[in-house]
Design a protein around this nucleic acid. Structure first.
Lengths: 226, 226
DNA sequence: CAATATTATGATAAAATGATAAAGAATACT
DNA sequence: AGTATTCTTTATCATTTTATCATAATATTG
C-alpha cells in the first residue's frame, strides 16, 4: 500500500529533510509532495487527493489553522500540525479544527514518522506496509514475510538475507563477494561457492518466481522483474 | 589500487592522527586530504573526486548531515560519519541520507581503518554510477546492462570488459597490448590475436552499433560515437 | 599490380564457471 | 541429550567461455 502525503512548510531545509527521510524510510511506499506556502498547498489539495497532510502552523500569507479549516470544508483527510508554539491554546485550537495530531519543533524524524504512520493506520484501518515488490516476489521487511506469486514462502535466514539484499537493489548485478561482505561479514573465510548453494535453495523455495534470479556468469546474480 | 579520501573534521588532533595513521598503514595506497570545516570540505569535493569521505557530524558552520545531503546531490561517493552522538535517530538519519556507515567517538584507528576498507571495497564494485553512453551504445556499470540502439545485449565476460574499457576511453586508440594488460592481466602469455576474436564477437553482438568499433591498422581499436 | 603485412572469420579444443547433490558440521529447539 | 534445521564443504557434471589455429579477406607498400 502506498500513501500520498502533502507537506506544507516554508522552511526549505525542513521540507527537504522530511521529504527525503520519508521517501527513503518508507522505501517509496510513501510519496511526498511539498508546498512552500498556504496558497500553493490549497491548490494542490483541490486538485489532488492526499492520505495525510502535514501543516506548518506558521506559514507566510495564511496561517496553518486557517488553512486547516479550509481543508476540512473540502476533504476529510488527517492533518498533522508542525508547530514551534507550545502553548496549550494552540494545541487545543488545532484539535478543534479537526487536526488529528501535532508535533512540536524541533522534532526527531523518527518520531514524526511514527506519528504519521499511526495516523495513516487510524485513518485507513490498515497499516502502511513498507512492502518491497519485485515482479512476482514481495518482501515485507517488518513482518519478514515473503510471498512468491502470491504464496507465502518460508526461507532460511541466509536465504532471506540474500533475497532482501537483492530486492533492495533490483536489476543490479551483485557479486558473490558483495553478498559475502554484506551478509556474512568480514569474518568469513570460506569459498564464495557457498553463495551458489544458498541461491540454489532460494530459487527452489521461490518456485516459479525463482526464475527472477538470473546468474550473470563470472559476475554474480541479478534479480529481475520477470 | 589507490584511493583518495577526504576527512572533514574540525578537531586538529583527530585530523592529524587519522591522516597519519591511514597514510602509514596503507603504505601510501591511500591519499588523505583534510578539511577543517564544511565550507572547505564542499570546495574540495566540488573540485576533486574522492573515493570516500569521512564526515564529522558536529562541524562548525554546517553540520555533517546537511553536508552529506549536499554531497549526495553532486556525487555518489561513500560517506562515513564520525559521530559523538549515539542516539538511534542520528544513526538512521545518516543512513537514509546515503551515509554508508558511521563510527562513534571515541573509536580505535584500527576499527576506522577496517570500516573504510570495507566501504571502499564495497563501493568499487557496486557504487551506482550513471550510465556510460557512447553513440548508440549504453553501458550501466551497476546493472552491467548493455544496450545497442536501444536493444538489450548479452555479452560474454571478456566482451563486456573490452567494451567497458573502450567506453571509458571513447575515441582513444587502444592497442591489443593495452587491452591484454587491462583485462587479461600480466599472467597471460598467448598471442594478441585473441583480442581480434573477442572484438569480432563483440561487434556482432552489438549488431548495427558494432560499426562504432573501428580498427586502426597496426595500432589497435577505437570506439567512436558513430 | 604484385607482394607483403595485417586483420577477420570460423571451427574446434581447452579451460573456466556454475548447478547440483550428497554428506558432515554447526546451530537451534524440544 | 536428541532431533531437526540450517550452514558449509566437497565432488561431479553440464554449460559457457576462452584460446588456438588455419584460412579468407582486406589493407599497405613499393
Amino acid at each position: 500500500m502506498s500513501a500520498k502525503i502533502l507537506l506544507v512548510e516554508d522552511d526549505n531545509q525542513i521540507r527537504e529533510v522530511v521529504s527525503d527521510y520519508f521517501s527513503a524510510k518508507s522505501e517509496c511506499s510513501i510519496k511526498m509532495i511539498t508546498a512552500s506556502d498556504g496558497d500553493e498547498g490549497l491548490d494542490l489539495i483541490e486538485n489532488d487527493d492526499f492520505d495525510l497532510i502535514m501543516l506548518d502552523v506558521m506559514l507566510p500569507h495564511i496561517d496553518g489553522f486557517t488553512l486547516c479549516r479550509r481543508i476540512r470544508k473540502k476533504k476529510d483527510v488527517p492533518v498533522l500540525f508542525l508547530t514551534a508554539r507550545v502553548s496549550e491554546d494552540d494545541k487545543l485550537y488545532g484539535y478543534e479544527l479537526g487536526c488529528d495530531d501535532y508535533i512540536t519543533k524541533p522534532f526527531s524524524l523518527a518520531e514524526l514518522y511514527a506519528k504519521v504512520n499511526a495516523l495513516l493506520k487510524r485513518a485507513s484501518g490498515t497499516v502502511s506496509k513498507p512492502e518491497i515488490i519485485c515482479g512476482n516476489i514481495a518482501l515485507n521487511p517488518v513482518t519478514l514475510n515473503v510471498t512468491a506469486c502470491g504464496n507465502d514462502i518460508e526461507l532460511a535466514p541466509k536465504e532471506f538475507e540474500i533475497l532482501a539484499y537483492m530486492m533492495k537493489h533490483p536489476n543490479w548485478v551483485v557479486s558473490r563477494d558483495t553478498l559475502l561482505d554484506m551478509i556474512w561479514g568480514n569474518d568469513f573465510y570460506g569459498s564464495p561457492r557457498i553463495v551458489d548453494n544458498h541461491v540454489k535453495k532460494l530459487r527452489s523455495a521461490l518456485g516459479e518466481a525463482g526464475n527472477q534470479i538470473k546468474t550473470v556468469i563470472s559476475k554474480g546474480y541479478r534479480l529481475t522483474e520477470e
